[in-house]
Design a protein around this nucleic acid. Sequence first.
RNA 1: CGGGGCGUAGCGCAGCCUGGUAGCGCGCCUGCUUUGGGAGCAGGAUGUCGCAGGUUCGAAUCCUGCCGCCCCGACCA
Length: 605
Amino acid sequence: MAAPLVLPPHRTEHLARDDVMRFSKLFLPTRKEDPAEAEVVSHKLLIRAGYIRMIARGIYDFLPVGWRSVRKIEQIIREEMDLAGAQEVRLPAVQPAELWQESGRWSEYGAELLRIKDRKGGDFCLGPTHEEVITDLVRGEVKSYKQLPINLYQIQTKFRDEPRPRFGLMRGREFIMKDAYSFDTDEQAALQSYDVMFETYNRICRRLGFEYRAVEADTGNIGGSRSHEFQVLAETGEDEIVSCSQCSYAANVEKAEIRVESSARADDAELKALTQLATPGQRTIEEVSKFLKQKPAKLVKTLIYLADETPIAVLVRGDHQANELKIKAYLNAHTEISCRELNLAADVEVERVTNAALGFAGPVGLQIPIFADLAVEGLANFIVGANAVDAHFVNTNHGRDFEVRAFADLRQARGGDLCARCGGSFESHRGIEVGHVFFLGDKYSKAMNATFADEAGHEHAMQMGCYGIGVTRILAAVVEQNHDENGIIWPMAISPYHVTILPLQNQDEEVVALAERLYAELMAAGVEVLLDDRDMRAGFKFKDADLVGIPLRINIGSRGVKDGQVELKLRRESDHRLVGIDEIVAEVTQIVRTSLATAKEAALS
RNA sequence: CGGGGCGUAGCGCAGCCUGGUAGCGCGCCUGCUUUGGGAGCAGGAUGUCGCAGGUUCGAAUCCUGCCGCCCCGACCA
């Protein structure tokens, strides 16, 4: 038998309209301790401060304060997109397989595409992106050059069945994204659309107060000639980027072009005799360099790749990293070896090609084409694997001990490398990719027959661009850049509330009365206020306020009320100042308006 | 997909090795005291110990399978 429900009389009242601005009624469950599964600060704080809860891996609930902030981010994006002449639409989350079969991506997209069946057994997927859907929409309605250009966008929940979701909102499977698609008559016009979006994204990042870089990026399988990522700088970012300290060049390390001043080996370099040394069990660069007491830069690593079916060897200096995108691009552009996919060869394949156990591969005696990074060209007397178990060669030299088919820029850029554009030196950063703009060309319009008639009545495929911003990822990125040991520190523009009022003594009627009065007056002035009316001790409210991160705080205490004053505390600063009771509403209203306006102006600069 | 770790109250964890009454802290409910940086005391409620099977007189504990979550790897030879 269920126990009878016992409630005190005051708990039977209904919720009132402004109750969501009262902490006592707000669904804002905070926690004192970090969640066990969270690794990065944004994930920990968003859970502790009651913004999100995980329901399955990479899938989250947004609680009221979290959703308020998400909607503010959306609104900023919406305003800037509308300003750029884009039009908002809403496309379906569930998409029919036919469209994906038409573009070819039903088979290409892989396991990240979550495929589902309807009750009749028809194939559908949860949309990870919307090129097919938008192209289908536009091809049905746009027939003439007179209807172009057009730029359509939406703010939508996407689903990508990531192999490894992590870091809370930073890499979820379900996430909110703003995606836009431009359609133009020709490439030149499409690149104009691209430039407008590029500038719009800069404005959005500035409005959000980000420290960020717009970096040149790889276009991946999408193709096309232009692509930029918007990377918010943060230690916990998953991407590595470099930016030039002298010019404006910045790029993802996958893409960054390096200037190599002089790559040739010095003419007078003395080539010592090739010698085999026993290196029992020493496989990695680190192990070998330690064992032989040589710097990793004296070693050359030999990577065996499969370019589609063709095995090739790639040499890079021991302290460098091979860049698969560059390798792939080089093969396709400069050799007869076609390479749709480049993969490191499996262990058995490596052993077959090198006739040696894993870890001892080297270029000497290899029967497959050898490509080497430019940095290897200038090396003399380096160390390589001997293609024999437990052995390495020292004093190896290309041209004498083995032939390199070609030297090229095949490695990943890093801090200190020289900028290909101006010769300045690169700084390296880690970044969170919050936006990505692509020029697509006619990949989708051709495959899906999205054409228009020009003035002469000739049919042409439309030129497309696509532009994405991770809305929920932005929420995490903002926290990564704006927090301290006590909690979140929101920029005014995306804080769930502008100001929070803390009556410090709930039993003091004057304190409570003043809190209620300021609450009402601030709301009337258009300020978003969170009143902490809970019957809690002062210290408890302080801790929660810091955790939740609202930028302004008004402390109302018994002493101050007697003196006609309240405390105004900025979350970002450590000290508070006293403000007269009659001035506080005007003061707070002013600060809120100014900081919102300043953020908007920053977008223009 | 490979390696490792974890799964016990809403949250954070102990107990498991060596099988025998399910625990601690926080949170929650009641009362009293307290009241400007996560209060104190007293009392109370809350668990199919991830799921399924097996071993056993007896399983949170041992065995098998499955599921879920986290970390590392899946380019550094």
